[in-house]
Simulated scan of single mutants.
Amino acid sequence: MAQTMVGWFRIALLLFALVLPATLIAQAGPENTTQPRHGLMWNKTGLPGVFPLLVKTNVGENYVLLLSRAETGTDAFAAFIVGGRFFKVLVPPGTYRVRFAAGVRWQGEDAMFGRQGETKVIELPEALTFEVHGFGTKAGHKIDLTDRGSGEMAGLRVEPELICQRIAWDISQCGTAGGATLIGCNGDHASGGLMPFVGRRFKLRTVVC
């Protein structure tokens, strides 16, 4: 009787060992091959995106933009670009190595556009730094991938992309300048005898430099 019980126990363990891997695979399921939306995929830096990165591409291929920390090589930031569409994203501060994976049919983050040569990799030779210049100028970059007929790197162009912040008067408020006509006021305010620019506020304007 005891030997029979041991035999059944061994058979049960064998069946369990055979069934468990199949169950785990079924639970994991296939990799998601749905093409990502045009724009940010993920940001692993823990910092907000504030510096501009503009990328120009051609119709016919899609791209994954990959930024990795220049010091450590760790993945930091990724975005998906539909070829030919306007693309501009805000990048966290730092210095990054920049790579692009290019191809036609998306097959998931591991395979990108395919493992058998379907994925082309373009890497910039120099790291790019995203930082503040002077007072209120956010320094980013513009990358042009539209002229690649003579080779992957021959037509690649990188230019600065700057966002400037300017301080201006908020002219929606009342005030006078040396007895001049009131600015931003109607006739009801004119009899109030306002002091020149009393209570005036500044406002911050953001423009492309």
Rank of each mutant, 00 (worst) to 15 (best):
Ala2Met: 09
Gln3Val: 14
Thr4Phe: 15
Met5Leu: 15
Val6Trp: 14
Leu15Pro: 04
Phe16Gln: 13
Val19Lys: 03
Leu20Asn: 07
Leu24Phe: 10
Ala28Trp: 10
Thr33Asp: 02
Thr34Cys: 02
Met41Cys: 03
Asn43Met: 06
Leu53Arg: 04
Leu53Gly: 05
Val55Glu: 05
Lys56Met: 10
Gly60Gln: 02
Ser68Phe: 07
Ser68Cys: 03
Thr72Trp: 09
Gly73Glu: 04
Gly73Thr: 03
Gly73Ser: 03
Thr74Phe: 13
Phe77Leu: 12
Phe87Tyr: 07
Phe87Thr: 03
Gly94Glu: 09
Thr95Ile: 05
Arg97Asp: 13
Arg97Phe: 15
Ala102Val: 09
Trp106Ile: 04
Phe113Trp: 08
Phe113Val: 04
Leu124Val: 09
Glu131Pro: 00
Gly134Asn: 06
Gly136Asn: 12
Lys138Asn: 12
Gly140Met: 06
Lys142Ala: 15
Leu145Ile: 07
Glu152Phe: 06
Leu162Asn: 09
Gln165Phe: 11
Asp170Cys: 03
Cys174Ala: 01
Cys174Tyr: 00
Leu182Trp: 00
Ala190Arg: 03
Ser191Gly: 15
Ser191Asn: 14
Gly193Met: 01
Gly193Gln: 05
Leu194Thr: 02
Phe197Leu: 13
Gly199Lys: 04
Gly199Cys: 02
Gly199His: 02
Arg201Phe: 00
Phe202Val: 14
Thr206Asn: 08
Cys209Trp: 08
